[in-house]
């Protein structure tokens, strides 16, 4: 076989396989949307699930997922940005800093189930927060912090050093320089990274099984006092999220329409993650344009 023929065959194989991957993704998306969209209705999105009867919805789970996302971001963002600033601006090059880097890398490679188990042991039991939204949010925070740190570092590294020097030369403190000069320039990267992280949080289940719990008590959607037990806003109540619900319905669902529910919920999950993805892209592009094409 001549080299030219081999080249043609190899090219063909590569194109074929790449096409196969694209087809697989389209098939995957198509399948979920095809199976799931038919099941999505206003009723499905808003009503509580049924254990053994048909017609259950995912209302509380959807709410839990969104609420948990907000809670997690409220905790993660200030911590992650702070730690990212430390790594990028305050840490001096040396043994200790590279040790911290190693630690962050290890944390980012821990399986999420391990994070969930740690949450069960320390947050749920030792801190006595029980299976609750707060426990889940803390576990997800641990799960997401390394990513947030990396995003912040990346964002700050993209800021031209001349900007920092200009501010410092005016006699402005380092901390003020970071907050008022460097962070605003890093913002597009930090924001679009955070949105992608949010998508990851929204779909995460393994870290939540043993922290936010697998049950959803009846919620009274007319009571918005976070201190009341039935209130949806109570952060100390157990809360099954959408992703956990999909897992539970699949592995131990008793309702006759379990598969449809899983399909519908998967479709909702996928659409949300897609929106996060598109949102991050659009925001990144918009911010980029605003800062560079201001002429």
């Amino acid at each position: 076989m001549s080299a030219k023929t081999a080249d043609k065959i190899a090219t063909g194989v590569i194109v074929f396989i790449t096409g196969l991957i694209a087809l697989a993704l389209l098939g995957l998306l198509g399948y979920i949307l095809f199976r799931g969209l038919g099941h999505i209705s206003w009723h499905f999105l808003t009503s509580p699930p049924e254990t053994i009867r048909k017609g259950g919805g995912i209302g509380p789970q959807l709410f839990n997922s969104l609420f948990l996302l907000v809670l997690t971001m409220i905790i993660t963002v200030p911590l992650g940005i702070g730690a990212g600033i430390y790594m990028s601006e305050y840490a001096k090059a040396g043994k200790i800093t590279s040790a911290i880097r190693l630690v962050v890398e290890v944390l980012s490679s821990f399986p999420s189930i391990i994070v969930g188990l740690f949450g069960l042991l320390v947050i749920v039991n030792k801190f006595n927060l029980g299976f609750s939204l707060l426990s889940g949010a803390l576990a997800l925070t641990i799960f997401n912090l390394p990513l947030m740190v990396r995003i912040t570092e990346q964002g700050l590294r993209s800021v031209p050093v001349q900007q920092k020097e200009a501010s410092l030369a005016l006699g402005i403190s380092k901390w003020k320089t970071i907050r008022s000069v460097q962070l605003p320039i890093a913002l597009p990267i930090v924001l679009s990274g955070s949105i992608l992280a949010a998508g990851r949080i929204f779909g995460e289940a393994a870290a939540l099984l043993f922290t936010a719990g697998m049950s959803s008590p009846r919620l009274d959607f007319s009571d918005w006092n976070p201190l009341h037990n039935d209130s949806p806003l109570n952060p100390l109540r157990p809360a099954e999220t959408l992703a956990v619900h999909i897992w539970k319905v699949n592995s131990e669902g008793l309702a006759p329409d379990a598969t449809q529910i899983a399909a519908g919920a998967s479709a909702v999950l996928i659409i949300t993650v897609l929106l996060f993805n598109l949102g991050a892209r659009a925001l990144g592009r918009y911010m980029h344009n605003r800062f560079t094409a201001s002429k």
Binding site: Q162, Q163, A166, A169, G171, I172, K174, V181, P184
Partner: peptide
Amino acid sequence: VVALRKNIGMVWQRPNPFHK
């Protein structure tokens, strides 16, 4: 150093206005 730099200004080779 911060208080000091207020008394000594600096201008660079490439203009570096803040993104403001």
